[in-house]
Design a protein around this nucleic acid. Structure first.
Lengths: 188, 188
DNA sequence: CGACTAACGCAAAGAAGATGCTTTTAGCTC
DNA sequence: GAGCTAAAAGCATCTTCTTTGCGTTAGTCG
């Protein structure tokens, strides 16, 4: 969340921010070296503008990364809580354990002095889970607590993505969902 | 892990590495600005030495951070699996959610291109858990799988420490342990 | 529509990072 | 344990990034 003062969000400021973010994404896509002067040049902006608004490259990367982690759509409806959760969890694990996904999460954490971007990242996942659970409630299903899902489905996947090298087993997502639904569900 | 080539671990190299690590810790303790030249000066070494061995500041910080995350002693023995796990988990949460602890974990992740330091960080926790479980087996207790504990106790705590701002509830650690022991234990 | 001010551009100064070459010294062989 | 080899550290220099003061532009509000 940190265009530093976050004031004056309209007009030129907004254009500059968008232009700079876009420049970062472009350079990342090209595997190019990533420095403030290069980003600024690509964005058609002077370096000092970037330094003044973001402080340093890490914070800029954190802002760009958290933006990329924003879900593009609510989780698909597969007709049941279990199916919804399994599909969403599989997709989440896929994204977070991919090369780019790992980078985005690490960038988010790295350039985030006050933890607000990390919080936002977690909030995105939480919203998705809440959507799935709310839908299940509408169906009359018995659902677990959001925090239970965060602790026992989201957290284990994120932990493995961050702390374990190597590709992740997709079956793991399914197992975690099954564990929550059939062993951790509060009594009806 | 990564003094770049990691070769020649004796003599001068070792002294330089220790001296540089110590300089980083000293500057961190003083809240001083942290740059390679400053660290080098404090360590009585030329900056180019640091650049050649660690590549950049982030990697150096990662190495120092993972070093600080190494447990100093095996978990205390409190006479039962539950007590051992609860105490260890409480301590772990305390450490990871403290200001410095959070920084160490973030530094570890940030300057770790190949994920080896992150892996080491996770391995430390895993060793501690294994020690607790092995002791319980010796006592004849029925114990959960290490991976189950990692997924449902360690991961949730780490997730909250990293992604949620604000202090953490110590009772949470206890709850997670109870959940694993009484709801997720594989049948005897 | 005019004053106010946040945000940007520009340029210069200061600090950090990179690199070729030399010197030291750990580790190995005989 | 003396000499050889090459890894690692020192040194000097050059490049690049970062910071900062000041003038200008352009949203915003009365």
């Amino acid at each position: 969340m940190s265009p530093r003062p976050a004031v004056r969000p309209g007009g030129r400021s907004a254009r500059v921010q968008e232009s700079v973010h876009q420049a970062v994404r472009a350079l990342q896509a090209e595997q190019a070296a990533l420095t403030v002067p290069l980003v600024a040049a690509r964005a058609g902006v002077t370096p000092s503008t970037v330094y003044r608004r973001w402080g340093d490259l890490k914070e800029l990367l954190s802002d760009v990364a958290v933006e990329r982690l924003r879900p593009e759509a609510p989780p698909a409806d597969h007709g049941s809580l279990r199916a919804d959760l399994e599909h969403w969890a599989a997709g989440f694990l896929e994204e977070m354990s991919s090369g780019p996904g790992r980078s985005y999460v690490r960038d988010t954490l790295a350039g985030d002095p006050d933890g607000s971007n990390a919080g936002q990242c977690s909030a995105y996942a939480r919203e998705q889970v809440e959507t799935v659970l709310a839908r299940a409630v509408q169906r009359g299903e018995h659902v677990p607590d959001v925090d239970t899902v965060m602790d026992h489905v989201v957290a284990p996947m994120m932990y493995r993505a961050l702390f374990r090298p190597g590709p992740l087993d997709a079956g793991h997502a399914r197992d975690l969902v099954a564990t929550v639904l059939y062993r951790l569900m509060p009594l009806p």
